[in-house]
């Protein structure tokens, strides 16, 4: 089964290598990994999609926890969550077919971000399924170039994977 993990890490050099190295070394399968800063510049957030049964996921979780730079891990798979991915696709389109492509873009609420003599670059966001479908419908026109960000995700409602808990933990440390 596919699991979506939200992982907060210290924004230290090498932290990505540590996480990626752990996955490859222990033979865990990463489907996608997206990383970026949070509102706290010392903390980054990784969204990792990993494939595995319950035992594998338990190991992924426990081994990640052992990395000193990993602050918090939430497996949000079972929660209600919003997930998004962004894709940029460059297609080569004869001007006569531009209209068709634009219609497809409309259906997916994609945007045209660049228009060349022979090419058209489109941007689309959505969950994996939508982005897959968008990619597929452009395939017949000849995709020149494609880039996907990998999935980012966030729990719905009042649940969150934030570093408020981290600051609490740090305060806790300071107290003892």
């Amino acid at each position: 089964m596919r699991h979506t993990l939200a992982v907060l890490v210290e924004n230290n050099p090498g932290v990505l290598a540590r996480v990626a190295g752990l996955f490859s070394r222990r033979g865990f399968n990463i489907d996608s990994l997206a990383v970026g800063r949070t509102d706290n510049p010392t903390v980054s957030r990784m969204t990792i999609v990993v494939e595995g049964d319950a035992r594998v996921l338990e190991q992924v979780n426990k081994q990640l926890h052992k990395l000193v730079d990993v602050i918090k891990i939430s497996d949000i798979t079972a929660d209600e969550f919003v997930d998004r991915e962004l894709v940029l696709i460059k297609v080569s389109v004869d001007p006569s077919l531009r209209g068709e492509v634009m219609q497809i873009a409309d259906v997916f609420r994609a945007r045209i971000v660049d228009l060349g003599k022979k090419t058209l670059t489109l941007e689309c966001t959505g969950n994996n399924g939508k982005v897959d479908a968008f990619e597929e419908s452009l395939q017949p026109y000849g995709i020149k170039e494609l880039v996907r960000t990998g999935k980012i995700a966030m729990q719905r409602g009042s649940r969150y994977t934030g570093f408020t808990e981290r600051s609490q933990k740090m305060n806790g440390n300071q107290e003892d």
Partner: peptide, 8 residues
């Protein structure tokens, strides 16, 4: 004191 939020 050592402050390592990810290490406990």
């Amino acid at each position: 004191p050592v402050l390592l939020p990810g290490y406990s």
